[in-house]
């Protein structure tokens, strides 16, 4: 009978985990209408490490937010496996985020009144099969600083807590929005190394958005965005280890 469970066809190109078609997003910024996405088509595959590269205003954050269920597209469709995210209501999106997605933000977004351990626990407490906060923090190399508050930690440490918080629930996808944007190069490399390790060790599909082209070197694929459109997609023949990145 175990054969029944492996009914999924084994094809050289696995089924995409994300499929986006004709995504557009408009939003009002004060008195200005911003067309952040103008028709994006994109597929992401299980376990891959994708870098979304583009200058500021190219729509990469908007795209990531829509993939992560933080926002909904104005038009177009986005599917996560069998879920049509573009028709989800708030409650369904909340459920989706809780079950499947880990986020890392440029400015960490830690809860200032909670320690590192508690910030991670905030997420593990509402997950079905999480790591312990301690495991997650050890994974990012912060086993020693679990009881420190955000203000007692450096930017790099805070970002690693944010990564621990994102991966502690063993999400299928890890979405990182400029994770090194607020960090110096040396610390940035450290943080990217953690993200790469999570991608490899846990097999988590990882999307990192950045405007830093150097980071593209560590990706399986690079999606270039410009003016709310996908300009081109590249596949890296040989990935560079995060620790070897310099900028």
């Amino acid at each position: 009978m175990p054969a029944m469970n492996q009914a999924e066809p084994l094809t050289p190109q696995p089924r995409p985990i994300f499929e986006a078609h004709g995504l557009t997003k408009d939003y009002q910024m004060g008195e200005v209408l911003v067309k952040a996405l103008r028709g994006v088509d994109l597929e992401l595959y299980p376990g891959e490490f994708v870098v979304l590269l583009g200058p500021s205003g190219s729509g990469k954050s908007t795209l990531l937010n829509i993939l992560g269920g933080l926002d909904t597209p104005t038009t177009g469709s986005v599917r996560y496996r069998d879920h049509d995210l573009s028709v989800y209501d708030d409650a369904a999106l909340t459920h989706y985020r809780r079950e499947h997605v880990g986020f890392v933000f440029q400015f960490y977004n830690l809860i200032p009144s909670l320690t590192a351990r508690e910030n991670v626990a905030l997420v593990t407490e509402i997950s079905d099969n999480p790591m312990t906060p301690e495991e997650a923090l050890k994974l990012v190399g912060l086993g020693e600083r679990m009881d420190h508050f955000p203000t007692q930690m450096s930017g790099g440490e805070q970002q690693r807590v944010a990564i621990a918080r994102a991966v502690a629930k063993r999400p299928q996808v890890l979405l990182c929005d400029e994770p090194t944007g607020a960090l110096d190069a040396q610390t940035g490399v450290l943080v990217l190394d953690v993200i790469a390790r999570v991608n490899q060790e846990l097999g988590t599909t990882t999307a990192v958005i950045t405007h830093n082209e150097v980071i593209a070197g560590m990706a399986d694929r690079i999606v270039h965005l410009r003016d709310g459109l996908v300009a081109r997609v590249e596949r890296n023949a040989s990935k560079i280890a995060a620790s070897a990145l310099r900028w």
Binding site: R97, V101, F103, I126, S127
Partner: peptide, 13 residues
Amino acid sequence: EQIATLKAFGYSN
């Protein structure tokens, strides 16, 4: 912002 963060991690309204 904290409310948004909580929501991002799957806390419901």
